[in-house]
Design a protein around this nucleic acid. Structure first.
Length: 291
DNA sequence: CGTTGAACCTGTTTGC
DNA sequence: TGCAAACAGGTTCAAC
């Protein structure tokens, strides 16, 4: 495990999906009766959250890329003056959302307590505070969610090809670009490229149709498997119920520098591509010319 | 357009 | 042993 890797959770698409599914079992139908705030520098507008969230009813929990969205119905409990609000949350690198009994011990770096009407609390904990939180009308929420690209699990092969070949950036950069595909992160990008045998520094526009087809399939298969396994790649993952999981995905490339490729036994290498650590097999994933 | 590097912030591991 | 450096799953912005 690389230095400093927080043994908490890795919020890429499968992890956020896992959190959303966990929250869905507890939150819809609950009312947020009170809010307590710690540090708020990860909020767009802390005052707005303090004013508009308390008293609201949680209608639904959903995911948009790596963003979690709570659909709220704000206004009086009798339904008068009801208005729709979105609570938009990004977990950044170390964010956690858990639903716990109100008397549960508070972990360090817990910055938001959403007190519910069933003596429980939704808590947001984020040591690095790279996360983000805001309340918005559905229209304003579109300013955040609207620019996000295609859902990697839904995108058709034809659209996938078009999105990749119409750009001149490296494939690694394209997969990580949230305005192209929403939800891909560093781990699953490397895993998808390894499975499709494509070097991260290849230009998207230069990929051949069979390669694009393989990548499309690899990406979806890996994301689906990760979701199925509970969306975590390290052992100390904590789900929405606060319970540690035993989810283990065996990385094929990510964080395996110097180890043998599971396909060809060559040594996995690491290089910086698109500003991020990138792990690949130099034999299976042929480097583009000029590298 | 696309790339790079720095910044945001805290914690853990590595290396001297 | 101790301390500093390097690094981390994310995003955003400035500079080239």
């Amino acid at each position: 495990m690389p230095a400093g890797t927080p043994a908490l959770l890795m919020p890429e698409l499968p992890e956020v999906e896992t959190v959303v599914r966990g929250l869905r079992r507890h939150l819809p139908g609950r009312r947020i009766v009170e809010l307590r705030l710690g540090k708020t520098d990860f909020m767009d507008d802390p005052a707005a959250i303090g004013e508009r969230v308390p008293g609201s009813l949680i209608r639904a929990v959903r995911r948009h890329g790596k963003f979690l969205v709570l659909d709220l119905e704000a206004g009086a409990a009798d339904g008068s003056g009801a208005r729709a609000e979105l609570l938009v949350i990004h977990l950044g690198m170390t964010g956690q959302l858990t639903v716990v009994a109100a008397d549960t011990e508070v972990k360090p770096h817990t910055h938001v307590f959403f007190m519910l009407d069933d003596r429980r609390e939704l808590r947001f904990c984020d040591p690095r505070r790279f996360g983000r939180m805001l309340v918005a009308t559905p229209a304003d929420g579109q300013k955040i969610l609207g620019p996000l690209g295609a859902d990697p699990l839904e995108v058709s092969e034809a659209d996938f090809r078009r999105l990749i070949t119409s750009r001149r950036a490296r494939i690694k950069a394209l997969l990580l670009d949230q305005t192209v595909f929403r939800g891909m992160g560093n781990i699953y990008t490397d895993e998808s490229l390894w499975r499709a045998k494509i070097h991260p520094a290849r230009l998207g526009a230069n990929l051949k149709p069979p390669e694009i087809r393989k990548l499309h399939r690899a990406m979806r298969a890996i994301l689906e498997q990760a979701i199925k396994l509970g969306g975590s790649s390290i052992s100390d993952y904590v789900g929405a119920d606060g319970e540690p999981g035993e989810f283990q995905i065996r990385h094929r490339a990510y964080d395996r520098e110097g180890k043998k490729c599971f396909r060809c036994r060559a040594r996995i290498r690491r290089m910086i591509v698109a500003g991020r650590s990138s792990y690949f097999c130099p034999k299976c994933q042929r480097a583009p010319r000029g590298l």
